[in-house]
Design a protein around this nucleic acid. Sequence first.
DNA 1: GCTATCCTTGCAAGCGATTGCACGGGAGAT
DNA 2: ATCTCCCGTGCAATCGCTTGCAAGGATAGC
Lengths: 364, 364
Amino acid sequence: MRHSSSKRQKDANVRGTTTSESDLLNGRIAKSVTIYDVSRAAGVSYSTVSRVLNGFEHVKDSTRSRVLRVAEELGYVANQKARSLAGGKSRVIGLLVPVLDNGYISEIARGVDEALARSGYDLMLYTTHRVKSTEMMYAKAIASGLSEGLLLLVPKVPAHYLELLRAQNFPHVLIDQQDEANRSATVETTNRQGAHDATRHLLSLGHRRIAFVSGSPELSPARERLDGYRKALGEAGIAFEPELVAEGDFQTEGGRSAALELLSLRKPPSAIFAANDLSAFGVMDAVRSVGLAIPDDISVVGFDDIPQASITYPKLTTVRQPLTEMGRVAVTLLLEQLHSPGSELESVVLKTELVNRESCGAID
Amino acid sequence: MRHSSSKRQKDANVRGTTTSESDLLNGRIAKSVTIYDVSRAAGVSYSTVSRVLNGFEHVKDSTRSRVLRVAEELGYVANQKARSLAGGKSRVIGLLVPVLDNGYISEIARGVDEALARSGYDLMLYTTHRVKSTEMMYAKAIASGLSEGLLLLVPKVPAHYLELLRAQNFPHVLIDQQDEANRSATVETTNRQGAHDATRHLLSLGHRRIAFVSGSPELSPARERLDGYRKALGEAGIAFEPELVAEGDFQTEGGRSAALELLSLRKPPSAIFAANDLSAFGVMDAVRSVGLAIPDDISVVGFDDIPQASITYPKLTTVRQPLTEMGRVAVTLLLEQLHSPGSELESVVLKTELVNRESCGAID
DNA sequence: GCTATCCTTGCAAGCGATTGCACGGGAGAT
DNA sequence: ATCTCCCGTGCAATCGCTTGCAAGGATAGC
């Protein structure tokens, strides 16, 4: 029953000869310094080292500081794999995104990254590449077991997958997505209100025929924005005209073709509100391609306020979503779950805000 | 000496009662399925399971398929932590970037992500947040030991850090950055040639006073682009005028102020070549802010061809770097190092290409 | 001065996997 | 028919770390 210790002993010796003390002190870390190395150098047991490193309480101060000093000297860095395998924490959280190609996602990711860095967590980035394969996501994110928690910035998370996360009690937060079942923490924005604001802005400028380029209707934010648009119209006593709503897909190309469609109506709109900035860019391009000017002939409004929105010409008037803030808040929510497992699930709704730039003009 | 096996035995039994066979078959994966679970269910030893899972050769076909089937049925997914701890591969590679806020980086990251996904690797994203702390990077990327290799998309990698990587023989690839010592694999583009092409394009349009908004001079691509600009000028018999070079920083703001400076010269340029697209956007904005038109009064050329370049108005003429391709190639290079450790370090130089859009006009 | 209690610390077990070594059995060689 | 040799498989050890349990020492209460 005590062969284990002798095994360790031998092991330590072997390593001790391979990596000489001087090598270590030289900073020429040949293999890697383990807690055993530290424990030997500090003259304590490895469990004591572990306790010190994990901020355990019952350790004599002198011991603690000695261990800390030695660890520092040897250039010890914890092996996260081993640490988490043994039941400790990996300090890694995963971010699941569809793709990496647009400002919307990278801005949120930036917020996530910042907040994570501040809390000493590392970021594992999982991309679904727009493939909705439950198996893949399951396997990658949870079972491979590298991350302690998961941030889901995926348009439409398969219900089955969410169930899995809940069943396993795996900490997670949905970003910019409703949770019908209300059993997951979420971070959303005031989509309806934002769309309402944008539409009212256009109305206040004198526009009466305001078109809407929608997002993919199966996504809740897309539906909410359409709602906001209709509500504002209704309040202004303007009848909703289905022909003024063209279906887009939150992408530039979809915005372009939707706009082309709207522009070719026998009674074209004087303003186009796009469900997000990306499609607004397509709208702008389409407007110009038929020889119209922005904002003189047509006003355009977007949604999101991704960085590109302020470098277009004219600069895009849009509804700002606090993207990086959303990322940061999501991290906060996730960390709360991690730190106090039993606690109530929180959800946060962030405010949108109309950013008035140059793409809208008054009508007279 | 044989207590170990009995320990395993007991362990397996305990688990067997906790997670019943039916539970597993129901897909209600309570804890997590290990190779022990699979081995018991398949009636083989755990090492055989491991061999099958790792595609080892000497396993009877019938055994192999049985194990595979059982693993599938139980929903087994390898625990990467354990796997890599035990000496196996983690199938994770790290990408080190300064920040996440611009198209240049995310396009490359996209290429990296795609290539990685295709090869079944996961991506760990490390952000330096523009802080050049060797310690941090070292600790995060290598010592925490999660990644098998590292992709460095960092403007200026501290020499000390590179040394560390080499000393440890840690697989890595530098993206868009020269390696003076030539001891690391790199992926670069024809910066000099690209700048040369852009300048010649402007010359062919009749421009004689061509200004250059440089990038941060401590970065090799920035220097090379300046070189290409000067070379083209020289070949056209035009004297290099220092006042026509304004220092930028690869950011939009820097581009704006540099352009303002150039535009206020007593003999302002008729064309401005910016060291990258981001600064070109600043240039465009500055040009407009002084009441000039693009391309009628001033021609503008950028470098990179990030996605935003084609949504500006007018659309930006620029030197295209195959960004996603760079990411993909970097992955290829890294994977080669991973798979054949001893082999020669490769470096790749990708071709740039002038993309002629709308921001340049002829001079008459 | 002696026992009860808490503080410190060490040992062993275990996380889930890989892998060197060894062993039994069938195929090919003589 | 006997001897190699290779094939297929199992056992034990190990990766680096966390943590329950237990023991020794110091401190405090009586």
